[in-house]
């Protein structure tokens, strides 16, 4: 018990530190590393609770694939510079966010600590955990019998996701949104017309300046836009 407690405290500290790092550190790469720390901590906690298989795939999938993907995107797209987080353009976003976070935490804790078992409802009637043999065998049995449709559907989901990602990352030369697709009178159309009008104004203004270069008109009126 003492070993497990020690493991828990250590892993929990790593998790919390990592989580705080994700939120507080400014460099996206550091954020990603903090995330890995949390994921690792969670994996350790899984092991601590006997979920060996989940711990392994947690590391393989999350750390090995997902965060690596994050790092790829960060590095390849060149957004690995520190972001300016000092200025918050949205009024009240931060205090509200923190308040909401605290509220979620507080309410969850109240629910967990005061309600105990009642928060979870009834226990499921799948296979019990404490059976002889590795946990992956029991998990596999449940997945391939009771949840076989869900399992197959997630397979389809993954396939669709892969295809979607390929389509999304295909480089095209057309603009993302084909403005001509939108019928007259929609918001996009209105906005485009506004842009056109602005552009026209600019052209007009330029023309004006060019046409009457030596009148008294303030050149900055037309030229500086």
């Amino acid at each position: 018990m003492r070993v497990e407690m020690f493991t828990f405290l250590l892993a929990g500290a790593i998790c919390l530190g990592g989580a705080l790092g994700v939120v507080l550190l400014k460099n996206p790469v550091h954020n990603a590393l903090s995330l890995v720390a949390t994921l690792f901590g969670v994996a350790v906690l899984f092991v601590n609770q006997g979920a060996y298989f989940l711990a392994a795939i947690q590391v393989i999938v999350y750390a090995g694939a997902i965060v690596i993907l994050f790092l790829f995107v960060i590095m390849l797209l060149g957004v690995d510079r520190e972001t300016d987080e000092g200025r918050e353009p949205l009024v009240a976003q931060r205090p509200l966010a923190v308040a909401t976070g605290l509220a979620i935490l507080g309410l969850s804790l109240v629910a967990l600590l005061s309600a105990g078992q009642r928060a979870t409802g009834d226990k499921a009637d799948l296979a019990p955990l404490n059976q002889p043999g590795p946990d992956i065998n029991h998990l596999a049995e449940v997945l391939f019998t009771r949840y076989v449709y869900a399992f197959e559907i997630t397979a389809v989901l993954l396939t669709v996701a892969v295809v979607g990602a390929v389509v999304l990352s295909k480089r095209t030369n057309e603009p993302l949104i084909d403005l001509d697709e939108f019928p007259e009178g929609t918001v996009v159309d209105v906005r485009r017309r506004a842009d056109d009008a602005k552009a026209q104004d600019e052209v007009d203004a330029d023309a004006e300046v060019v046409a009457v270069p030596d009148t008294e008109g303030d050149p900055q009126e037309g030229g500086d836009d």
Partner: peptide, 23 residues
Amino acid sequence: LVLAALIFSIGAVGLLVRRNVLV
């Protein structure tokens, strides 16, 4: 569970506060 609640709340706050899409 308490640890999980903490991590969840931190994540929620981060989601609302951070401006970088990746973060």
